[in-house]
């Protein structure tokens, strides 16, 4: 494959980095994941293009969840800064890329109407935000550290603290929806969603505490880099 086409092609999903569709331990996958083999197809313009949302899509405070839903005061909980770089597999920064996040509040309760967990809502916290990476692929959010919450997958099941993220990247096939975790969470070993990712890859979902990101007297900082499917390695030409 030569020239422009080769440069534009995306790498494939790396199945050694990705969780399976069906995972007995995560019960609702059993009736919801595809069971037939995926049909491999070549990438065309349909796969090499994708939705573009730049700075025009983001308003002031969209990236500051401690401020973007205030009603009569500040949200409760531990303020944190979550920042990192969005890059491709060649470690090239992806500038002007949309990052959307959503999460529960510090008590472990989501604003979503279907969340019936008996923990308080926070009138000053929505838990949704978005931002666009800068010219170096860097993004930054200010938010409240999400709490752990129970779910019904198995007896006494609790999700580790996490923030949900959604990114498009360069094209529709680099689409990524994932979750960011916090270092040293004691719930990791019991969580089938986290453990559904092969060992060696799941560690990439854990942010690192970063004192240099911390803002004195204000908030702790966590670093989380996101690696999206990048250009396919092009064969050497001689």
């Amino acid at each position: 494959m030569a020239g422009r086409e080769g440069d534009d092609m995306n790498s494939n999903r790396d199945w050694s980095s990705q969780p399976p569709y069906i995972l007995e331990e995560y019960k609702s996958t059993v009736l919801r994941g595809p069971t037939k083999p995926l049909v491999p197809i070549a990438q065309s313009l349909s796969e090499l293009t994708g939705p573009v949302y730049g700075h025009e899509a983001v308003r002031d405070f969209d990236s500051d969840l401690t401020k973007n839903a205030r009603v009569n005061g500040e949200p409760l909980g531990e303020r944190i800064i979550v920042a990192g770089h969005v890059v491709d597999e060649d470690n090239r920064p992806l500038p002007n890329t949309l990052v959307e996040i959503w999460q529960c509040n510090s008590a472990g309760r989501y604003v979503h109407a279907a969340d019936q967990h008996d923990a308080p809502l926070d009138p000053n916290f929505l838990g949704a935000g978005r931002c666009v990476t800068d010219e170096n692929g860097r993004y930054e959010f200010r938010t409240i550290k999400p709490g752990a919450y129970p779910w019904r997958n198995h007896p006494n099941a609790w999700r580790p603290n996490h923030i949900h993220l959604s990114l498009f990247g360069k094209s529709f096939v680099s689409r990524l929806v994932t979750q960011m975790y916090f270092p040293g969470d004691p719930l990791f070993e019991f969580d089938p969603i986290f453990n559904g990712v092969p060992e060696g890859a799941r560690e990439r979902l854990v942010s690192s505490f970063d004192l240099s990101l911390t803002e004195p007297e204000f908030a702790l900082g966590y670093n989380f880099d996101i690696v999206l499917r990048g250009p396919k390695a092009t064969p050497m030409e001689d």
């Binding site: 980095s17 470690n91 969340d115």
Partner: peptide, 21 residues
């Protein structure tokens, strides 16, 4: 340097107020 793809995780049941508010 090659970096490994960030793994996918479920969108979960509570995406609505973030992705389709």
């Amino acid at each position: 340097m090659k970096r490994g793809q960030t793994p996918s995780q479920t969108v979960g049941p509570f995406f609505a107020y973030g992705l389709a508010p």
